[in-house]
């Protein structure tokens, strides 16, 4: 299987909400110095999904990572290599900045066409900055291939199909899909593997391939290729008036909490 995984570098989404800041005048987030960039967690799980397939037949399987952005930190974007992926392509240029899902998916589609034939593309179900959950399906549409979103299990079958478990509200659907296909991965897949020391060594020696818009034949990228416009970005004000119940002991506080809820007709 020839597999491609799209991985985005994002600011650590697990950072405390209190660290989050906006430059509202410019409709932009401000990067707080204490918050570090990471690979979008779902994308690590997308890498995991591809590596699980690679594990079954190492010889014939290849995993290529594509990351789009600007000022990508090599230590961060190389993580999938240290987990066991084979190759890294960076779509890196200031011109890629400020794109929406349409701009990102269009550039990824152009790069994938340049990479050549593939069997499976994996994306995360969504990335943690815009939380859009659109690039995967959009990319599949641009490439004219089938897609299954929010997968928790992917198995290659004989006869050119993969069996996918797709998470829905009260359970999951089991689908059989013809490949080449695109699959977006959810956390229900299970934890992504850690990088091994050997993997980290190998990754440090590998040089990513870097492509600019002209290399993949796109004349409009980033902000210039957007279909949607941000009219306003803002942080809703939180009133934050928590009544912290204090008492001589936590147990008494617990009992007092029940009383408070009763007084306020909550229970």
């Amino acid at each position: 299987m020839n597999m491609i995984v799209c991985c985005k570098q994002v600011l650590d989404p697990e950072a405390a909400p209190s660290t989050f800041k906006l430059d509202a005048a410019n409709n932009r987030m401000v990067q707080p110095p204490e918050v570090k960039p990471v690979i979008n967690p779902y994308d690590e799980q997308a890498v995991e999904a591809a590596l699980r397939i690679k594990d079954t037949d190492k010889a014939g399987n290849k995993v290529t990572i594509i990351s789009l952005g600007n000022n990508l930190l090599r230590d961060v974007v190389k993580k999938p290599l240290s987990m066991g992926a084979d190759e890294l392509i960076l779509l890196e240029d200031p011109a890629f900045e400020g794109g929406d899902s349409y701009a990102v998916a269009s550039a990824l589609a152009a790069a994938i066409k340049k990479v050549g034939p593939f069997d499976l593309i994996f994306c995360g179900r969504q990335e943690s900055e815009w939380d859009d959950g659109q690039v995967g399906s959009g990319l599949a549409e641009l490439l004219g291939i089938p897609s299954v979103t929010v997968a928790k299990k992917v198995e290659v079958q004989s006869g050119g199909t993969v069996k996918v478990e797709r998470v829905v509200a009260d359970g999951f659907q089991v689908l059989e899909v013809q490949y080449p296909a695109l699959i977006t991965v959810s956390n229900e897949l299970g934890e992504a593997r850690y990088a091994t020391l050997k993997g980290i060594m190998a990754a440090s020696k590998k040089q990513p391939i870097v492509w600019k818009p002209a290399d993949i034949g796109v004349d409009k990228a980033g902000a210039a290729a957007r279909k949607t416009r941000v009219v306003k970005l803002f942080q809703p004000v939180k009133e934050g008036k928590c009544d912290i119940i204090s008492a001589d002991s936590p147990a008494e506080a617990g009992a007092l909490l029940a009383q408070k809820l009763r007084e306020n007709k909550v229970i």
Partner: peptide
């Protein structure tokens, strides 16, 4: 909502 719910954005096209 964007950024995990830390902010909101108004979009149009």
């Amino acid at each position: 909502a964007v950024y995990g719910g830390n902010a909101k954005a108004i979009f149009t096209s």
